[in-house]
Amino acid sequence: MELYLIRHGIAQEQQAGIKDEERELTKEGREKTEKVAQRLKKLGLQFDLIVTSPLIRARQTAEILLTAKLSSHLEESNHLAPNGHISSWLDYWLKPKNLPQNNQLALVGHEPCLSNWAEILLWGEARGGLVLKKAGMIGVKLPEIDSPVGRSQMFWLTPPRYLL
């Protein structure tokens, strides 16, 4: 399975009166994310499934990817919320009944969670070495058998400026 970890686009700043989970993409964030999505489509990317954090900014980012026809399937998962843990996500997704037949799965979420997840998959622990920019993407290939923790391979690390 190829796993694409995608950070949400530029969102409203944290401020009094707006809960973190209600922060939306800004106009600039929406425009940049749309351009990134169109570029990914031109590069021939196609996701069998997009799974998004339930927070508004991530959901909006996932919907932009869907609108760009990078996938026709979208699901929401609390595992991708800022307090989510990769171990609980892996426990859920790696069960035979939940394991998708998908070869390319996109996860839309937040930092530092996504970078930490990538590092855990690559090195078995979060080291704080990877940084995922807003609307950026990390691609990780998971092994076909056994645990992917510390056994996966990174094949893509792109900040959005290289796609605009």
Rank of each mutant, 00 (worst) to 15 (best):
R39P: 05
K41W: 12
A11K: 01
L40S: 03
A11D: 00
K19R: 14
R30A: 12
V51W: 11
L55T: 02
Q46E: 15
K19N: 13
K35R: 14
V51P: 09
I86L: 14
I18L: 14
L45V: 10
S72G: 15
S72T: 13
T33S: 04
P54D: 07
G84H: 04
T52A: 11
L49N: 02
G9A: 03
V51T: 10
I50K: 00
I50F: 06
A62G: 04
Q12N: 00
I50R: 00
K69V: 11
D20K: 08
Q14I: 13
A16F: 13
Q60A: 03
E34F: 02
K19S: 14
A68S: 12
L40H: 01
N78V: 15
I50A: 00
L80W: 08
E13V: 15
F47S: 02
E21C: 12
E21V: 07
A37C: 09
A62V: 09
S77N: 11
Q38T: 12
T52L: 04
L5C: 01
T33V: 09
E31S: 12
K35W: 01
H8Y: 04
A11W: 07
V51I: 15
I86S: 10
G84L: 01
A11C: 05
K41N: 13
S77L: 03
E63D: 11
